[in-house]
Amino acid sequence: MADTKSRRTANINVTEFHNFFQGWLVRQQHYLEELRSALRRCDESRDEDLRDLIARVLAHYQQYYEEKSRMANHDVSLVFSPPWFSPFEQSFFWIAGFKPGLAFRILGGSVDDLSKEQTERMEVLRSETKAEERELENELARIQESVAAPPIVQVARKENLPVDGEYDTADMESVMETLRGEMEVVLANADMLRSRTAERLVEILTPFQNVRFLAAVTELQLKIRMWGSQIDAGRRR
């Protein structure tokens, strides 16, 4: 009965997040159109208007991270293998999302007028981001290795031994709860790095450079989603 209730709750959470995400994507497409419009009107756009647009786009992404965090609190394993993303989209993922360093590759292809000072600051940020990525990768590897190492294996074997006519699952539940907690921490830190990298990058760029960069980021994400949907549709034929 408890398992049935748990599955029902999980299904409700997935449905709610899926509905949120569909609406989020619609709004993202609208933001892309705004960003493109601002680029076309570059000579007419005021810095104040551009900053307002940039702030709204960043807030839009932050909303996704907040909803994703709530979903992870319900089931972190689901966020690491999200059914609301196609296998093609997931092939680009690093700790349940795009790698922060990808931002610098997109920047290189969309902004070609960085000053010397901006370039130097970008290199510092790139180096710091790469170091933090390695730390998170090492932490995730440690967690993954612990799944197949003592004491988890010992507990799993112990679970097969009857205790007073019942299976002793208390130890296993305790260990798995610890693992889920560690996964949530790694995910939260990865999302924080993604957000912080984007925020610091935006601080270095001028308003118009930011619009070019954010337009390129948004367009790439929507294209990857479109390609993933097309691949899935082809497989169903």
Rank of each mutant, 00 (worst) to 15 (best):
R7P: 00
N11C: 08
I12C: 02
F20E: 05
F20C: 04
H30D: 15
E34V: 00
L35E: 04
C42A: 12
S45N: 03
D49F: 04
I54F: 02
L58V: 15
A59M: 07
A59N: 08
Y61E: 05
S69P: 01
M71S: 11
M71T: 10
A72H: 10
H74R: 10
V76R: 04
S77R: 13
V79L: 06
P82V: 10
W84K: 07
W84A: 07
Q90F: 00
F92N: 04
F93Q: 01
W94A: 11
I95Q: 04
G101I: 05
I106T: 13
K116Q: 12
E120F: 04
L125H: 05
A131R: 12
E133P: 06
E135V: 10
E137R: 12
N138R: 08
E139W: 09
P151Y: 03
A156W: 06
L161Y: 06
L161R: 14
A170T: 07
D171I: 06
T178Y: 12
E184I: 05
E184A: 15
V185S: 02
D191I: 03
L193W: 13
S195E: 08
T197G: 06
V211D: 00
A215M: 02
V217H: 03
T218F: 11
L220F: 09
L220G: 03
R225P: 06
M226H: 13
M226E: 15
G228Y: 01
G228H: 02
G228F: 02
A233E: 10
R235L: 12
R237P: 07
